[in-house]
């Protein structure tokens, strides 16, 4: 049994390549998830790099690497083994495997990629910056956001946020990793716990907007929740309004339907 610990796509790719050179089959590889399991296995661990290389060149379709890259950011610990298994099959069994999306492993990897894509999209949508005075230079605005992504996707949203908010100073904090930008450079730091006391008075305007753009005569809660699941609500300043707006909507609609139109009322008055 070979024990391997990786944390990033690059590390995984390097290790996977060495394993394939040595034709070590997926069932002989144990992909460790953290240091603790490392202790369990370290006794009889053999360094696989000492094993002989059986195959000097391997070719792997580019499309596979494009699949592996996002999948590596999935929170499911089975991802490394799954990807190695697919790589193995592509090299030694069927180089067209990827086209066959009803294969259970391909289907699983595809669905993981989809879930990553959705998570990225939701993060780009639901991150909320709050303006805070900058400690070092008070004349500058600093923007801080707290977000809890489903997967380890912070490295995948760097380009989106830096392209969009290039001329702002900001940080996006998450439990896994934090992303910072100072108008020229982006850098990442370790994850943090939820910061307290972030407040932005502009949120009152945003809430007023949210309240008033909603049409009570068209209430469709399920449709809203399928696009904005409850797990995101905790970090959305507008979410606490949902309950109240929903409760009032029947009453407001009925009021509009019982038409107390000024036009009609005026007419009634004239008749009197």
């Amino acid at each position: 049994m070979v024990n391997i610990q990786v944390e990033t796509y690059k590390q995984w790719r390097t290790q996977a390549r060495e394993l394939l050179y040595r034709q070590i089959p997926p069932e002989d590889v144990h992909w460790q998830v953290d240091q603790q399991s490392n202790l369990l296995f370290s006794e009889d661990d053999t360094d696989f790099l000492e094993l002989p290389i059986k195959q000097k060149t391997i070719s792997i379709p580019k499309a596979f690497l494009e699949l592996a890259k996002p999948v590596c950011h999935h929170r499911d610990n089975s991802r490394w083994g799954l990807l190695y298994s697919i790589a193995w099959r592509l090299v030694f069994e069927d180089k067209h495997l990827l086209n066959f999306d009803i294969d259970p492993q391909i289907a699983k990897a595809m669905s993981m990629r989809k879930s990553i894509g959705r998570d990225i999209h939701k993060m780009e949508a639901f991150v909320r910056f709050r303006k805070t005075p900058c400690a070092s230079s008070p004349e500058k605005d600093y923007f801080i956001a707290w977000f809890e992504p489903e997967h380890y996707i912070v490295p995948l949203v760097v380009s989106f946020f830096t392209r969009r908010f290039s001329n702002m100073h900001w940080s996006i904090l998450t439990p896994d990793r934090c992303l910072h930008w100072d108008t020229k450079q982006a850098w990442q730091t370790e994850g943090v716990t939820r910061p307290e006391g972030l407040h932005d008075e502009l949120e009152e305007l945003w809430k007023a907007y949210y309240k008033n753009i909603f049409n009570p005569a068209r209430l469709k809660l399920k449709a809203m929740q399928s696009e904005m699941p409850k797990k995101y609500w905790v970090n959305l300043p507008e979410a606490p309004l949902i309950g109240e707006l929903t409760r009032q909507s029947m009453f407001r609609t009925e009021k509009m339907m019982t038409n107390t139109s000024s036009e009609i009322n005026n007419r009634k008055l004239k008749l009197k």
């Binding site: 702002m168 809203m224 904005m228």
Partner: peptide, 26 residues
């Protein structure tokens, strides 16, 4: 995008983004 600009903002060129949903599902 705003990388070489003085302001803010970007567009994807394809899909837009929904930043929130109101209880009417919009």
């Amino acid at each position: 995008d705003s990388k070489k600009g003085k302001g803010i903002g970007s567009t994807s060129g394809g899909m837009g983004i929904c930043h929130s949903y109101t209880p009417d599902g919009r």
